[in-house]
Nucleic acid binder design. Structure first.
Lengths: 160, 160
DNA sequence: AATGAAACGTTAAGATC
DNA sequence: GATCTTAACGTTTCATT
């Protein structure tokens, strides 16, 4: 992760292509943006080293693997720390990393402290996650769920 | 998109690898899961055709391209349709597709109708999006924002 | 004009499919 | 075998002197 330069037209065009198809060949990318494959490669390496391109991934469609239920979950934490224990925030954050159902978690402003997106098989699975895992966690005071009725838009494309 | 079969151990192992690195060579994947490259390729093609693997993408780190502010945005729509107009829901959904700042949008249960995740450069940018775009939209009745203070977890890995 | 830095294209060998 | 990636090398461009 070297120094981050401003992105020019070509960088942005390359990013647009790779954000839609992370496996597009450098030849094809070059054809689209008006460069040779090796020139594209050099720029991509620069973008990777600058941390602009974080990584390449395969996206799995949740319904296709039996994950039919998504929920947004607001969590409020206990605020007081018992002196001999780790503080609730650090404890909660560490736990979140270990829960595979939680695909997204952010500290947010507002009444609640955290916003989570949770992906599970069905309501029984969700119920177990809430009852047996989340609400049993010592840092969690309260939570509030909004179930997803319909995915309108899901994209990994950043508006560059 | 052919018929979807149950996933066996090997399919799941392959998915685990490709969800972490969408460009891992079939040779290396095979080494990890105990298959030859060509056997891995056959399975991956099956998974692609079955729609389990939706696509491959490059993930761009938002901060690295100057997108420093993320917000969760709850939107409530007008419910009554003026007979000569398109219904508010369809109109809103179509608009969301055209707004690049909105990277995620779902119809949800609860007081509000939609949950959006919005990625922008800064507060000025967000303000403009809310004032000039969202609240001027004929379908939108009300909205409520939670700003992201800290990203705790962001993953595209589905818990298979 | 001469210089150096940055970026490009061509080529060819090696890796991957 | 065909395609794709990658490093090496020579060339072009452009800002600076």
């Amino acid at each position: 992760m070297t120094e981050l330069q401003a992105l020019d037209k070509l960088d942005k065009a390359i990013l647009r292509r790779l954000q839609h198809n992370g496996r597009e060949t450098y030849d094809l990318v070059g054809e689209q943006v008006g460069l040779s494959a090796s020139a594209v490669l050099r720029r991509v390496k620069r973008l990777e080293e600058a941390g602009v391109i974080d990584r390449y991934v395969a996206l799995v469609k949740p319904e296709a693997v039996g994950l039919g239920l998504t929920a947004y979950l607001n969590v409020r934490l206990e605020k007081h720390t018992e002196s001999h224990k780790r503080n609730p925030m650090d404890l909660f954050r560490a736990s979140v990393q270990t829960w595979p159902e939680v695909v997204e978690c952010a500290a947010v402003t507002g009444e609640m402290d955290y916003m989570l997106r949770v992906v599970v098989r069905d309501m029984a699975h969700y119920s177990r996650f809430i009852m047996d895992t989340l609400l049993k966690h010592p840092s969690v005071e309260d939570c509030k769920t909004s179930f997803v009725l319909d995915q309108v838009k899901v994209t990994t494309v950043m508006p560059v």
